[in-house]
Structure formats: C-alpha cells, structure tokens
C-alpha cells in the first residue's frame, strides 16, 4: 500500500472518532489530514496551541494574513466561530481538560499507554513544544501512526525505550493495520484493516494484544 494511501486510511478511521461539537487539537503532519474526512453532519472546533480556536482551511494567496498561522507555522484561516487568546489561556484550555480529543503521531507506544514522540537520543533534539501538555491535558488521546517503522521494527511495544512524552495517557492507537484501545489491563485489538490479517497484525506488534477473534471488526 502506498504511503499516501496508508495515511488516508488512518485519517479516515481517526475521523470516525470525532463527534459534532468536539474541540480537537490535531498534531502537525498526518493528523491534520483528519479534518478532511469528517463524517457528514460532524462539525468540530480545531484548537491551535499558538493561540486560537476555529482553524479554517489554507487561504488563497491573496487572502493570507501573516499573523494567522497554525502551530506548524503554516498560513491558515480562522472560522466565524473562532477566537484568539494568549499562550497561557491556550494551554489552560489544553491542561484544563477543555480539549475533547488530541490526535498525535508517535515513535513508540507501549502496553501501559506510555507515549514516546519527542526525542531520539543521539539524534538532533527539536524539543517537545506543546506535545507533553496536550497528552496530559486532553480528554482523549488518539495516536495516529503507521503500524511499523520504515525499517520494519515495531512501534507498538511492551515498554517504550525512548524518552517518554507522557506516562499512561494514550487511549486509542489507530494505524494502517489496526485499531487498538488502551485499557488498564493492556492493549485491546478491536479492529483490523481490510486487506490485512490477524496474524499479520500480531506479527507486526511487539506487545501483547488482548482480543477475542470473533469480535474483531474490519475497517
């Protein structure tokens, strides 16, 4: 499956988790695609951690405003329900539990719901930005990522080996191969993608998956 097709499959599945009226923060990169695949009748309010609610689509060049960018620094628009605030308010919204769902990528997720997505020792450091606050503060944490690394190694592991972004905060993992819910007793495999098999998902996961074969749905 081509890279872009995998990303679209993940984004479409993540979009099904979002409900009308939700306040949502989408991480930079693939998570931003989710906004393109919302179910009919679902309208969400996108939070931008640099200080506004109501992110709209990319503007046409002549309508771009240099002072209106998303958290990745890309020019965007603001919707008519939007509003602006400072960074302390922005993170009070996040930490205070006023964001319903955040969708982020990951380097590793483990059986306890620990997340590593900000640093690889020995590689150039970029900093955590707002990721640690988002993962601790949002009500629901969805990890959207490819199931395995480019070199074939697992991203879903027994225990994260990379420096953590947050401890035991992940709720749901959505990959190109599977949907996995994180509960206190471990990782529950609840869906697998069409064109993949249970055996392939288990082989691509370096952690214990809990499931009952009859109840696994296809997405």
């Amino acid at each position: 499956m081509a890279q872009m097709d995998k990303r679209i499959r993940i984004a479409k599945r993540v979009a099904k988790e979002l409900h009308d009226g939700d306040v949502v923060n989408l991480g930079i990169g693939m998570p931003t695609l989710v906004a393109n695949y919302l179910s009919h009748g679902v309208s969400i309010v996108l939070h931008s951690e640099n200080g506004f609610l109501g992110i709209g689509p990319e503007p046409q060049a002549e309508l771009a405003d240099k002072d209106l960018v998303n958290a990745g620094g890309k020019l965007v628009t603001i919707q008519e329900n939007g509003c602006c605030f400072d960074s302390a308010m922005s993170f009070a919204i996040i930490r205070g539990g006023h964001v319903d769902t955040t969708v982020l990528g990951a380097l590793e997720v483990d059986e306890q719901g620990n997340l590593a997505n900000w640093m690889v020792p020995g590689k150039r450091i970029s900093g955590m930005g707002g990721a640690m606050d988002l993962v601790v503060g949002a009500k629901k944490i969805i990890i959207a990522m490819e199931h395995i690394n480019k070199d074939g190694t697992a991203k879903i592991v027994k225990q994260c080996s990379l420096p953590l972004t947050a401890q035991a905060e992940v709720d749901l993992i959505i990959t190109d191969m599977a949907v996995i819910a994180v509960h206190k007793d471990g990782l529950h495999l609840i869906e697998i993608a069409e064109s993949t098999t249970l055996e392939e998902v288990v082989a691509a996961t370096n952690a214990h998956l809990l499931f009952s074969e009859d109840n696994i749905r296809i997405f």
């Binding site: 951690e49 400072d86 960074s87 302390a88 922005s90 993170f91 996040i94 930490r95 150039r124 450091i125 970029s126 900093g127 955590m128 930005g129 707002g130 990721a131 640690m132 606050d133 503060g137």
Partner: peptide, 20 residues
C-alpha cells in the same frame, strides 16, 4: 540543536504550557 549538543549554548527545554 548543534550548539546544545556541543555545549556552546545552554538550552532549557520546557513544555510550552509550562513555559507559559
């Protein structure tokens, strides 16, 4: 990043909401 690694610049990396 290079200056941080080579000790030319002390960088205190702080979560954005904590910094605020």
């Amino acid at each position: 990043g290079r200056c941080m690694e080579e000790g030319e610049l002390k960088i205190v990396l702080t979560p954005q909401g904590t910094l605020a």
